[in-house]
Amino acid sequence: MATEGQAPAVDAHAHVFTRAMPFAADAHSRPDYDYGVDAWLADLDRYGIAHGVIAAASLFDDGNAYTLAALAADPRRLRGTVIVPPETDAETLRAMADLGVVGVRLAWRRVDELPDLKSDPWRGFLRRIADSGLHVELLSRSVSLPHLLPALDATGVDLVIDHFGVPARDPMERHAATDALCRAIDRGRTWVKLSAGFRMPFEIAAEVTGRLLAHAGAQRLLWGSDAPFVNHEGDTRFADTIVLYRRLVPDPAMRAAIDRTALALFFDKESSA
């Protein structure tokens, strides 16, 4: 059962929203239900998870008001990321950080042409993110990682990579992307989320998890539920994500170390340096 053993300390990746929020013009999905912060907190309580990190959903573009209100309502328990345009100034980023924002999400999984990070507005934007004590939360296709991760790392910004790096079904592409993740981890500013494993074959999730654990241990890994499982609502429950996590990382001591990584990174930033 999902309740057996120690619960994760932090759900490092979930989306919260209501039907009243306007969708982005190019939203790839349009959920017709609410999964508000109260519903997510109820799930966390049900499974004994103490803390959570809201991942900004690209479905709503840069509509961050709901996330910011949720963070302000429970600053001890919650952190979050936002999606903002690259022209966003440092004062705005710092004000969001004061409310519990820990990162800026770059949702580039469905972007055909990635921007030139060496040119403005991106060069200045990434510098302002780093100067504000925030990380970049990156969602991008695995084929992009071998060249995108070094370019982001060169800016000096911390990186949190979503969904195992979105590993490809193609073995060569997947192996090259995981190699790139390992190199980025070695450079000292990158973490990877074991999140949304239900969106890929178990064997692929297990392969990438095994390589990352062997290469870096738990010190650069995080776990997230990806609730409410957009496009998989009918076949995935919150409990299933915990069961899957325990299959991927069966050692309780390793999972406890991943907990410490998440707590340090999101809730006690100084101790993660």
Score class of each variant (00 low, 15 high):
152 L>R: 00
121 P>T: 01
269 K>A: 15
23 F>V: 11
40 W>I: 02
178 T>S: 11
259 D>F: 06
246 R>D: 07
168 A>P: 11
14 A>N: 07
201 P>G: 10
164 F>G: 07
95 A>V: 10
89 D>H: 11
98 D>S: 13
70 A>D: 03
254 M>P: 05
147 H>Y: 10
146 P>V: 02
173 E>A: 15
193 K>P: 09
163 H>E: 02
210 G>N: 10
226 D>K: 10
72 A>F: 05
32 D>P: 07
28 H>L: 11
95 A>M: 08
236 T>Q: 09
171 P>H: 00
156 G>A: 00
86 P>K: 05
7 A>D: 13
175 H>E: 00
52 G>V: 08
32 D>F: 10
220 R>I: 03
104 V>H: 04
177 A>C: 12
131 D>H: 01
146 P>L: 14
139 L>N: 09
149 L>K: 08
2 A>E: 01
76 R>N: 02
255 R>Y: 01
41 L>W: 08
235 D>Q: 06
30 R>T: 12
95 A>D: 15
78 L>G: 11
234 G>T: 07
91 E>N: 09
123 R>Y: 02
131 D>R: 00
214 A>M: 02
85 P>I: 11
129 I>C: 00
151 A>D: 00
3 T>L: 15
264 A>M: 02
264 A>H: 04
119 S>R: 15
95 A>L: 14
213 L>C: 02
43 D>E: 14
82 V>I: 14
231 N>D: 15
156 G>M: 00
47 Y>K: 14
213 L>P: 08
56 A>R: 12
179 D>W: 08
186 D>N: 09
243 V>S: 03
118 K>C: 07
68 L>R: 05
151 A>T: 01
74 D>N: 13
226 D>W: 01
270 E>I: 04
253 A>L: 06
122 W>C: 05
225 S>G: 06
134 L>R: 00
17 F>A: 06
36 G>S: 09
263 L>S: 02
109 R>C: 05
105 R>H: 08
59 L>A: 12
146 P>T: 00
257 A>F: 07
251 D>A: 11
160 V>M: 04
258 I>S: 05
271 S>Q: 05
100 G>D: 10
124 G>E: 05
235 D>G: 15
194 L>T: 07
65 A>S: 14
225 S>E: 02
68 L>W: 08
163 H>S: 10
